[in-house]
């Protein structure tokens, strides 16, 4: 191989940039091809296969799966619902995470290290465990509902419905949002904020005119990440939705595992992939608009 030759020949200089790039990218390209691209192509093909009763997959190509997606109001509702819920969760996560990220960005030394560990630590626990934690807190016998009842109000149902899913997912996604925001806060120089203050901007106007615009790249990145993670998560909606919340990810799971309709599950998966693509497109457009 030419790669081996490059190293073997003592007279030759360092490998050219192009061949070095190929060498460095080859492993990830292989892993991606085997672990991602081939399965996705397989899924894409399967979405045009006929579903046979009892979990079989027909060889013949058909548009039936895609047609049922468009014609069946249930699936259309599912798409709208999933996107809407994911956007709402993303927004809540952003609002809750932004002040924390800003504070972390401004803190320094050991305090910053401690806080960063605190922010990341939930990621060391499985989402399943955290979901069960939320179930314990929000269920009818849990402390929140009991406290509201003890105060004499009619307690709302917080668990096994959409509220539970939104609360649980927002908390689970917060570490990702905070890390993404922090990564995007690079341009935020404290001197620039001070410049705005000395030029007569109140703290609020400094935020609106300087801090917020400068943190938009971080916001865009965090929102993309949380939207994608939210629309594709199924454990939390499954456990906290109590079978009443229907989202794309849970439906894919049901079709593939319960109904054994793999072609339809594949079609829904391709649909999610298309939504991802749209989100990515929106993200890059936002980035271009910012700069």
């Amino acid at each position: 191989m030419s790669v081996a030759a490059t190293f073997a020949s003592p007279s030759s200089k360092a490998p050219s940039t192009a061949s070095l790039a190929v060498m460095l990218l080859l492993p990830i390209a292989l892993v991606n091809a085997v672990g991602f691209i081939i399965p996705v192509l397989n899924l894409a093909r399967m979405s045009f296969n006929e579903a046979l009763p009892g979990g079989g997959i027909g060889e013949a190509l058909t548009l039936a799966n895609w047609q049922s997606l468009v014609s069946d109001g249930f699936y259309l509702g599912l798409v709208v619902n999933s996107i809407g819920v994911s956007l709402l969760i993303t927004l809540i996560t952003l609002v809750l995470s932004y002040p924390i990220a800003l504070y972390l960005h401004r803190s320094s030394g050991r305090w910053r290290t401690f806080l960063t560990v605190l922010v990341i630590s939930p990621l060391l626990t499985s989402a399943v465990v955290r979901t069960y934690g939320w179930i314990a807190i929000l269920s009818d016998q849990g402390p929140v509902v009991q406290t509201i009842a003890a105060l004499g109000f009619t307690p709302p149902r917080l668990m096994f419905n959409l509220t539970g899913v939104i609360v649980g997912l927002s908390e689970i996604l917060m570490p990702y949002m905070i890390l993404a925001l922090l990564a995007g806060f690079g341009r935020l120089d404290p001197r620039v904020e001070e410049a705005a203050r000395t030029l007569g901007a109140t703290p609020f106007r400094t935020f609106a005119r300087v801090i917020l615009p400068l943190t938009l790249p971080g916001i865009a990145l965090g929102c993309l990440l949380c939207f994608v993670l939210s629309i594709s998560s199924f454990i939390t909606p499954k456990l906290m939705g109590g079978g009443r919340v229907f989202l794309l990810a849970t439906e894919i799971y049901d079709q593939a595992i319960v109904t054994l309709n793999w072609p339809l599950a594949a079609t829904l998966s391709m649909l999610v992939l298309i939504i991802f693509g749209a989100a990515l497109g929106a993200y890059s457009r936002v980035l271009r608009a910012i700069d």
């Binding site: 620039v192 001070e194 410049a195 705005a196 000395t198 300087v210 400068l214």
Partner: peptide, 13 residues
């Protein structure tokens, strides 16, 4: 007061 910073601190956006 008008302050000119060592790093200039212009608004990059």
């Amino acid at each position: 007061m008008g302050l000119v910073f060592q790093s200039y601190a212009l608004f990059p956006h």
